[in-house]
Design a protein around this nucleic acid. Structure first.
Length: 279
DNA sequence: AGTGTATCCTGCAGGC
DNA sequence: TGCCTGCAGGATACAC
């Protein structure tokens, strides 16, 4: 569910609420969200202060006063809900509750429980951070850098975009949207993109992520921000979820194809099929 | 190296 | 109304 724009929206909402606050009690209602036992997890958080909160790819990283990091991946249906008084009204499947000293409650909520919460020591966090690709919205992320990385891969470009080791934060919605905006078929092999196409794709990714952040994310069904509010980007989607609807650019019918185990949406006219070269 | 498949889990929409 | 199937913003492990 949550991709870069959704996680960014949650982080922005949470930051002023949790930064500088000391964690009191941690209650684990759903131990399968963790990779260690609930007692150990809670013990590594209680009495620590959140000194900083940042987004890395699709993850939330809470920097703690003892140099540990609480890393949260929201999976498909995870969310972080904050309430100053009592349980957040939107919490339907609470998994972990963080009670702050002096009031304030943060609830990790997740219907399907594909999410993961873990406390990392500095070395573990450093390794995890290194394993992720660059941030697409970083100033230093140029079309040139992207071109070099694409050249090294024979994967379909949509699969490349979903690989968090190549680029951190893009998921299925925004991969499809960026490819539609850039007029590139999702199954094109990464290394076959022309330099014009790479330039368009680089620009399209950054534009669609920024547009979606401005709209506070896409709510298809589950996604809610830290206050339980929906994102408003869904009506602006041009390809994702629009099978059989007219393409906003040319009017042809958007098609849905499946590869890499995920649905891909494209306009057959604007995003022509790659000819894989007959024998 | 890349890709299809399965897995974790719940809820909802659509067909009959 | 009820039952069944398929599908979903993610990540990973496996066999070929």
């Amino acid at each position: 569910m949550p991709e870069l724009p959704e996680v960014e929206t949650i982080v922005r909402g949470l930051k002023p609420r949790v930064t500088g606050r000391r964690i009191g009690r941690v209650r684990v209602l759903r131990p399968d969200l963790l990779r260690e036992d609930p007692e150990a997890f809670s013990a590594r958080l209680e009495a620590r202060t959140v000194v900083r909160l940042e987004r890395r790819g699709k993850n939330l990283a809470f920097a703690l006063s003892d140099d540990g990091t609480l890393l949260v991946n929201l999976g498909m249906t995870g969310g972080m809900l904050f309430s100053e008084n009592g349980e957040p009204a939107e919490a339907t499947h609470p998994g972990v509750r963080f009670l702050f000293q002096g009031g304030g409650r943060l609830v990790y909520d997740d219907t399907r429980r594909f999410g993961v919460l873990e406390v990392l020591d500095p070395e573990q966090w450093r390794d995890r951070d290194r394993a992720l690709g660059p941030e697409p919205l970083a100033d230093g992320y140029s079309a040139r850098k992207m071109a070099r990385a694409l050249e090294a891969s024979r994967s379909p470009v949509r699969s490349w975009l979903l690989d968090q080791r190549k680029l951190a934060g893009v998921g299925n919605i925004y991969a499809n949207e960026a490819l539609h905006r850039a007029r590139i078929h999702p199954a094109r092999r990464a290394r076959t993109l022309t330099s014009d196409e790479v330039t368009r794709l680089h620009r399209a990714i950054r534009a669609v992520l920024r547009d979606a952040i401005r709209a506070r994310g896409t709510t298809f069904r589950d996604y809610r921000d830290a206050d339980g509010e929906r994102g408003s980007f869904a009506p602006e989607l041009r390809a994702y979820g629009r099978e059989a609807e007219p393409c906003a650019r040319c009017g042809d019918e958007i098609r849905r194809v499946v590869f890499g185990n995920r649905a891909a949406f494209h306009c057959p006219t604007c995003q022509p099929e790659p000819d894989e070269g007959l024998p």
